[in-house]
Design a protein around this nucleic acid. Structure first.
Lengths: 205, 205
DNA sequence: CTTTTATATGAACGGATGGTCAGTTAATCT
DNA sequence: AGATTAACTGACCATCCGTTCATATAAAAG
């Protein structure tokens, strides 16, 4: 039940409802519900109810459930790549690695639902959709890997294996999302510093 | 369709089928299907078909779908803790950390489906079941944490924060499961050596 | 051979599913 | 004011869901 529509009587177009509002609200609701219960476990009717609308109305905004999932994941990865691209690029691989570490932690912590979905619902994507998502993921991984190879060339990093180190760092940083809660033992700055310390040491900086 | 039952005519008890055989086969099929498609997306009829039996027959072996999931996760974690307990306990925290690293990688790589389920289907557990699983997971985490605190006491390890280091190491090692394939670029021994190198350096050993 | 028991079938239960669509209304345009 | 369009409803479709149960049969026990 949203603040605009107080439909006590039957009506088709609810007062003040617009495409610009309902569309994003559908994505928001789906994101939250998919993250909480899983794509397969969430029905279109649940999403519709969250938005305050009947199930049929969803299909004015999305072709089907699968596309909804894909767009959420695609949008998340696009934001991730864009946000990183807009980051200032420090001089020196070590500084860039530090920037990557901090960026990754903060960006992902700010979007726990999207991150969760992007990692857990890969198997619910159609093959073509999966390929598109996987390509974005690998592009992001490539960004870190080239920082590491730069660092090797500069002589400031000496990871045992750049490809594995890339995956290891990303897995390690992703882990933060599973336990960090605001107001916990450590501030975000402290967490960032601790992980940067471990990353730097692990890669022999 | 299994090798024992070639039911061309209607029959109730299929030739040679026994509780000892069907029970584990149900768990095997459920494990594989849950890992591949997700708990919510797999129907009891799909599991039954995989076993070569009708859906109703499953309920001779499990009370319901939820219990099936719980037993799979519970069994996996019990095996994990038991296997680690049976491991020889080397002298010195550094040696124990190395043993833990190798054990974790190998144990998890040998059971990708169970690992996947144990991490991805937590949200499909009832609250009581979730609490039980979470307790086991934390017990395992505690094993690594005490290795780290031992290492600090011995002066051979200096992680920036033992609790975070514990989580970071486990997340990092878990990552191996997402990409390692037998016959790939690296042997298991090489992977183990590379990760051990990164873990040791990250924790300041 | 007869009885018992374990194991399976297959139909049925109420309800939920993703998706479609004709009809209805509110806002907008002319 | 009248026509058009965007937004939504509510009924509906075929299908699937987890689970139950009366029934049937094969194996084991006596």
């Amino acid at each position: 039940m949203n603040g605009w529509s107080v439909n006590l009587c039957r009506m088709a177009r609810t007062q003040g409802s617009h495409s610009d509002i309902t569309g994003p609200r559908i994505r928001d609701a789906a994101l939250r519900l998919f993250a909480r219960h899983g794509y397969a476990a969430v029905s279109m009717r649940q999403i519709a109810a969250e938005v305050g609308v009947q199930a049929g109305a969803l299909y004015n905004y999305i072709p089907d459930k699968q596309s909804l999932l894909f767009e959420l994941m695609q949008g998340h990865l696009a934001q991730l790549l864009e946000a990183f691209a807009e980051l200032p690029r420090p001089e020196g691989a070590l500084a860039r690695l530090r920037a990557f570490t901090g960026f990754h932690i903060r960006f992902h912590l700010a979007r726990p639902d999207a991150v969760f979905i992007a990692y857990m619902e890969l198997r619910n994507l159609s093959p073509e959709n999966f390929a598109a998502i996987e390509a974005s993921r690998q592009r992001y991984e490539g960004l870190l890997e080239s920082i590491l190879t730069d660092g090797i060339a500069e002589g400031v990093l000496a990871p045992p294996d750049p490809k594995l180190a890339t995956r290891a760092v990303i897995a390690m940083l992703n882990g933060v999302n599973t336990w960090y809660r605001e107001g916990g033992r450590l501030t975000l700055d402290e967490v960032e510093a601790i992980y940067w310390d471990m990353v730097r040491k692990a890669l022999g900086g």
